[in-house]
Amino acid sequence: MATSKRSTSTASTDADETQALGTTGAFAEASRQQMATAVESLGVMFRAAESLQQAQLHMAQRAALLHAQAAENIRKASSPVELVSIQSTLLLYEYQEAMRYWQELMGASAKAGAEMARRRAPREAADDGVATSPGAAMMGAAMSAAAPMADAFQQMFTAPLKAAQQAQQTH
């Protein structure tokens, strides 16, 4: 009888240890997956920051070139009308560059958001049993719908700029 108590006690201890290890193993796996997701998200955020920095760099390069050209044109100007024309053209170019800059920033932000949604979609599908993420589909649809509108908005300002350039070149 003492032997059966001991074997029952040993069996229950072994079962408790196995159950504890199973729970610990599942917890460790969940923690590892969460850590991988966090590190992956940081990678996406750093790529987004790089895209934003590139947009800022391009804007600064274009602005430097634009202002250097405007300074040269101002030096060559021979009348007050030319000065006003150069300043107004510079103002229009700056407005156009601001619109382009904001468009690049929004594009970089949307790209980062879409990448995050794409990376979440497989995990959400595994968790929910759904094949695609509704958030990713909505993000893609919104970006597709916004692109022509942003292009049309930019064209609204480039047409007067082209006319001003042609007028300035003919003078």
Rank of each mutant, 00 (worst) to 15 (best):
T132A: 07
G129A: 05
A110V: 06
E82G: 01
A110E: 11
E50S: 14
Y93I: 13
Q96M: 12
A63L: 13
E72T: 15
H67W: 09
R75P: 02
R120P: 09
G107Q: 05
G113D: 00
G107M: 07
S41A: 14
A108L: 01
P134Q: 06
Q96L: 14
P122A: 03
D128V: 02
A77E: 05
Y93R: 15
V44A: 06
S51M: 13
S78Q: 15
H58G: 14
A98N: 11
E40C: 06
M106V: 02
I74R: 15
E94Q: 13
A108H: 02
E40P: 10
L66P: 03
A55S: 10
L65R: 14
S78N: 10
E124K: 05
A70L: 00
S78L: 14
R119M: 05
S78E: 14
Q53W: 13
A63R: 09
E72C: 08
L83Y: 06
R120H: 05
T89L: 14
A117T: 04
Q56N: 15
Q96D: 11
R75V: 11
E50W: 12
E40G: 03
A60M: 10
F46L: 15
E72P: 07
A110F: 01
S78M: 09
A68I: 09
M99K: 12
R118G: 01
Q53V: 09
Q54D: 15
D128G: 12
A112R: 00
S41T: 13
E94F: 07
A125R: 04
L91M: 11
V44F: 01
G107R: 07
Q69D: 11
E82W: 01
S85M: 12
P80N: 05
G129W: 09
K76H: 06
L92N: 06
Q56F: 09
S133M: 04
A63M: 10
S41E: 06
A125N: 00
S41D: 12
S109I: 13
A68K: 08
G43Q: 00
S88G: 05
K76Q: 14
D128C: 08
S85H: 04
A126I: 06
E115V: 10
V44Y: 07
A60T: 05
A70I: 10
A64R: 12
S133V: 04
L65A: 13
T132K: 00
S78D: 12
L105D: 04
A131V: 07
P122C: 04
S85Y: 00
S51Y: 10
R123D: 03
T132I: 03
E72N: 10
A60S: 02
E82F: 03
L66T: 12
R118F: 00
